[in-house]
């Protein structure tokens, strides 16, 4: 064994031992200079290989390679350890209080009444109903006369009407004028439409009553349409809106443009029919008015009432939205208080 072989073995052992005390990146650098730097024994021997005698070369070469590989392996392992330790330290320093609030993005929301409208569009869309819209400023003819309310008809009292300074022009008190408009446009085809829109009534503005509100009306015209069809369609709507088990009841009512006419109540979804503040103790919530289209209205629409029949229904979505979200004041919808809108 050559002397140098022994020296290299000793150098490897010394290097590995020295490495054990190394604990950070700086001392590791010093160690690297000492054992694997230009002036280190291993690298000196490595560099002088060319000057060695031919027969010594393989022996010393093998020894120096062994020492170098040994040192480098130990270094790699140490480096790995130090990196892991320092990352751990960094993690500790970077640890957040994850319970602090997140940064809120600016978020836009659909207005609650538009949400309700969309839901109604979807439900009736599934049942084959299309959407038809008509003017908010209407003629007296469409708003009343064509709906079987000639001038001075007692039923005109049912709506407190806003009149305009133009004779014969009113703000529509309901979406029903659209019934005659869509009939005149589509006759003699079958009709299955919903008529959504803003309507206006002369009322005191209070937490419970509005001068402007959104109604959705339903109109079906065809051959052989019956009261039973109306009931079935409205039941399906109630179940889709208020849940599979929603119970409804139909009781007689009056609208000049339908005959027979009815009012549909749904069992209060707040108390399940037991009686509560929302249903005023009755267990029922009034959700819509409906009836078989009056022969006079069919005639005004261009349909022969001896051949065609139909049903219509109308609901105010402001009130149903109020109930749905337990909103305390109907005026919120059009005051657009951001603190209200942000909750949807």
């Amino acid at each position: 064994m050559l002397e140098i072989e022994g020296k290299l073995q000793a150098e490897l052992a010394r290097g590995i031992e020295a490495l054990q005390t190394v604990a950070n990146a700086e001392s590791l650098e010093a160690w690297k200079q000492e054992f694997l730097g230009k002036k280190s024994l291993v690298m000196q021997v490595y560099g002088s290989m060319g000057k060695l005698a031919k027969e010594e070369r393989p022996i010393i070469g093998k020894a120096v390679n062994q020492a170098k590989a040994g040192l480098e392996a130990a270094l790699a392992e140490k480096e790995e350890g130090i990196k892991a330790a320092s990352q751990q330290e960094a993690f500790t320093k970077e640890t957040l209080d994850v319970t602090l609030p997140g940064r809120k993005p600016r978020r836009g929301r659909i207005h609650p009444l538009h949400l309700t409208l969309r839901q109604i569009y979807r439900i009736f869309g599934d049942m084959g109903f299309q959407i038809y819209r008509s003017p908010e400023v209407e003629t007296d003819d469409y708003n009343f006369t064509f709906l079987n309310m000639p001038p001075y008809h007692p039923a005109r009292d049912m709506w407190d009407t806003f009149y305009t300074d133009k004779e014969g022009v009113v703000l529509r008190t309901h979406t029903s004028p659209g019934q005659v408009r869509v009939m005149r446009e589509r006759a003699p085809e079958n009709i299955r439409v919903i008529l959504p829109g803003t309507t206006m009534r002369y009322e005191q503005l209070t937490a419970r009553s509005e001068i402007e509100f959104i109604q959705v009306e339903l109109l079906v015209v065809g051959k052989g349409i019956t009261f039973a069809d109306m009931r079935g369609t409205l039941n399906d709507f109630a179940r889709r809106t208020f849940g599979e088990n929603a119970r409804t009841r139909l009781r007689p009512s009056f609208f000049p443009f339908t005959e027979p006419s009815a009012e549909m109540d749904v069992e209060c979804f707040v108390c399940g029919g037991e009686g509560c503040g929302v249903c005023k103790g009755t267990g029922w919530l009034e959700i819509l008015g409906c009836g078989m289209v009056h022969p006079t209205v069919l005639r005004y629409g261009g349909y022969d009432p001896e051949v065609y029949s139909g049903f219509a229904a109308g609901m105010g979505i402001d009130r149903s939205t109020l109930m749905r979200y337990h909103i305390d004041d109907i005026r919120h919808f059009r005051n657009n208080d951001i603190r209200f809108l942000e909750q949807f």
Partner: peptide
């Protein structure tokens, strides 16, 4: 009793 509409779709 209620029924489902059975007339032809417009």
């Amino acid at each position: 009793a209620g029924k489902r509409l059975s007339d032809e779709l417009p």
